[in-house]
Design a protein around this nucleic acid. Sequence first.
DNA 1: CTCATACCCGACTATTTTAGTCAACTTTAG
DNA 2: CTAAAGTTGACTAAAATAGTCGGGTATGAG
Lengths: 155, 155
Amino acid sequence: MKLSTKGRYAVTAMLDLALHTGKGPITLAEVSGRQHISLSYLEQLFARLRKANLVDSVRGPGGGYELKRPATQISIAEVVLAVNEPITATRCNGKGDCQGGDVCLSHQLWSELSDQIYQFLSGITLDHVIQRDFVQQVAERQNVRFREEDVIAFG
Amino acid sequence: MKLSTKGRYAVTAMLDLALHTGKGPITLAEVSGRQHISLSYLEQLFARLRKANLVDSVRGPGGGYELKRPATQISIAEVVLAVNEPITATRCNGKGDCQGGDVCLSHQLWSELSDQIYQFLSGITLDHVIQRDFVQQVAERQNVRFREEDVIAFG
DNA sequence: CTCATACCCGACTATTTTAGTCAACTTTAG
DNA sequence: CTAAAGTTGACTAAAATAGTCGGGTATGAG
């Protein structure tokens, strides 16, 4: 699992699509304008998103992209994986280069952790993020108290 | 929040330290040998880990590094943050460059998500990773917690 | 039909990050 | 003193990131 600005751009763009569903295809130009991501870079990202079956493309005038599945059915993990090369284990690529259990320990530990992060992000859909943000804004408007949930949830 | 090979190296090295506590300081040469990370690169990483108060250094012969706090008190999030520059928001760095709420939406959305990942990794300590079964439990607990929040927020 | 719109694709490039090298220096145990 | 170890800074090669450019191709509106 890898999280970088690249994944962030992809997720942001997908969230933009999710926020504007139901009005037909969205052009990348619109996304570019709204989210300030260069059009050409978006084209690269969406080429991968399309290959990963996360979006459908409609060519020609009036065309654009739309989510292939509803926002409730697309996880953040899927989006991030779609645009990122799988992380390489640099040495001992599972081939058996490394002798002794101790040497492979690092990869084992990391892969253990990486799995957990993946599982976590698999549980968050595009819809979750949009709704959370909405809640946040409403809460802000109502001048509700400080973010107590975080303390409760993760303390 | 950013996850790359750099963070992985740092976490791996810290796990190595955690696995060898109680026998005095560990030299970077040892870590390098065991985890196959170049000594010079480890030096760079540990310079940051030291500044972040995650490790203590002992100079001179017989010296090395040791965890500043017990492995149960150091989270993965701390380690990753220590070695990574904070992720930049590229445009509209909170200064107010961007007019209109719509423009800043992307950053809001991402920061929302980034927070969640950070909270998740804050809940995992070095010790948790070493005791593998524990990781599973923590992750499960937090996953459930996250979904519950959504339901509550919505309901 | 045709033309503008929008996706599609590959090559190229600048910048940043990653990963590592090298050399000089400081501290300190023996 | 001397050798072992951390400390620091300058440097660099390779890769990833974040684009740009320029030409395609499909297609719906006129």
